[in-house]
Design a binder for these strands. Sequence first.
DNA 1: CTATTAGATGTTTTT
DNA 2: CATCTAATAG
Length: 679
Amino acid sequence: MFDAGSPPAWLQALNAEQGAAATHRGGPLLILAGAGTGKTTTLCSRVAWLLSEGVTAERILLLTFTRRAAREMIQRARALAERAAPNAGRVVGGTFHSVAHRMVRLHASSLGLAPGFGVIDAGDAADLLDLVRGERGHAAAGRRFPRAQTMLDIYSRTVNAQTPLADVLAESFPWCEEHRDALAETFRSYVERKRELGVLDLDDLLLYWRALAGDEVIGPRLANMFEHVLVDEYQDVNGLQVDILRSLRADRRDITVVGDDFQAIYGFRSASARHILDFPNVFPDAAVVKLERNYRSTSPVLAVANAVSEQDRLGYPKRLWTDREGGPLPELVFPRDESDQARDVCDRVLAAREESMELRSQAVLFRAGHDSDLLELELTRRGIPFVKYGGLRYLEAAHVKDLIAVLRLATNPADEVSWFRLLQLLEGVGPVRARRILDSLRASGGGSPELGRWAEAAVHVPAGSLEHATGVIGALAESGGEATAGARIEQLCEMLTPLIRARYPDWAARVADYEQLIAAARGAEDIRHFVSELVLDPPSSSADLAGPPHLDEDFLVLSTVHSAKGLEWDAVHLIAAYDGNFPADMNTSSDESIAEERRLFYVALTRPRRRLHVYVPFRYYHRPHGRDDGHGYGKASRFLTEEVKRLFDVKHAPVTDGPALDPGRPARRIEVSVDALFG
DNA sequence: CTATTAGATGTTTTT
DNA sequence: CATCTAATAG
């Protein structure tokens, strides 16, 4: 506690609304915090205030959207609270999924789970779905059966929204409706199979946590673990997560949520801004605090963001303001095509660096991972270092999945999916032989594969691959009792390397990747822990795994808008802002989905502190990977209305600028003919 | 049965 | 680019 009349400096630094939120006493609290209004500071201050009020750190639960956010907040809160509560312990924090993981581990037996259950990532889940679909014989049924990844999307949406499959299909996947029955059957066997294998997918973690929290006996115990629950980015929770919170607070009232309904961008994950608007109904007598003073951006930048947000009249009315007058006008650039766009971005980035703006305080943002393909080439060509967040992820690379499969097998030989993957790495082994080998590994009555039965299984391995195979099995069988996780993983890598070498022409680069993984594993307790952590907190860029970059290294940040949420830079370059990308073509089916695209656009516009550049390439390529030059003629995003455009400094307006642009119709016809040559 | 090749095709966003 | 299909060769 602090002396009356002299609040600590960190509390004095807050404005009136922030202070009120940080020191709110008793009952549910909703903080509606616009972009850049000091949301993180306020939440950290609230945690610090709670600590200074004598709340035990372990009895505070802080749920955030990413693990990184949790770490950052807890650190800042502890730094703030240092004086008031010098010996504060550990605040319990993390994503919904990682906390769910801890809770489910704690109560595994009550849930009928083996103590060593595994957690599978989206890739594994998709593989498993594909496997059961194959067994069910739907492989050939219907020409365009949804792919594994799509099946998982459908499944996940059904579960997270707690909505009947038929409705999900009709609403979000109309092109898969004809396969409804086959999908339902596949999902049923998928659920069954996960049980058999002793694995949970990411959605299960939430489902199981909710089941625990709702249980008569265990529920109250979980609830009483925490005196206070704080939730960040509340606009992105889904119904399942709200259920969990309701159970956790059934008999307690201390819950604080922070969010901005205008930054809700995870509808595809069944999140809905409805929940933040509903909060006062779900948690009666909630106090509501609005933060509208923006500390991040200059007023010309903020003007653009406000103008876009005003296109949407739903939700809490709010208008951000700042006293940071002045600063350059945002720039709206119309490059001729995507190559010009890449050059324009590079030029501007380098020019800004000449003015001593580090690369690391600039970012390029885009809607989809592949929007930056050409830019990446250009950056490489010019020797501009960069890191990319979002888009293709490290864990999705084939060889990394191979290694993960081996790691899983080292702790759980029953993991069929991993067996299947590993066995097919052997030369001369395809799906059929892998299945036969797997069957021989199982004890005669069925059951799970066992390493001890390798001798019988080896008959099915082609002679040429036998040596590789026994090497692998040997390494797996070696009890890792005294070895550290790092050493164990290193050893498993070593045995995997020859297979990788034989499999992939570019094996050298792939094997080099393992070094990072081994380095990351050195700190881990054990392999199972390491793999679970990897699944729950995947490295968001390939550089993430390599650990903190050297301080003297400077690099440009490339990121999807989704991954950029909550971050800020001095300068932001938003590329590919053409209609079809903002909003994305496949997400314009309803008013609500267009509104979500607008919010995504808004999130991008609210990232910069001083400089905003928006690029609309006039001509863009349809197939990012195709060899043909199939292209479209784009017009600017529909969110860039005339009203919004007026707030920009417009560069290189296209010749064909007009209200209703007729795609591709040239101003005049240019004749090319060789007929004259033929007389 | 598996490997190899050629050809077609693909809706974005992430815990 | 990655993944899937079909057809052909080993």
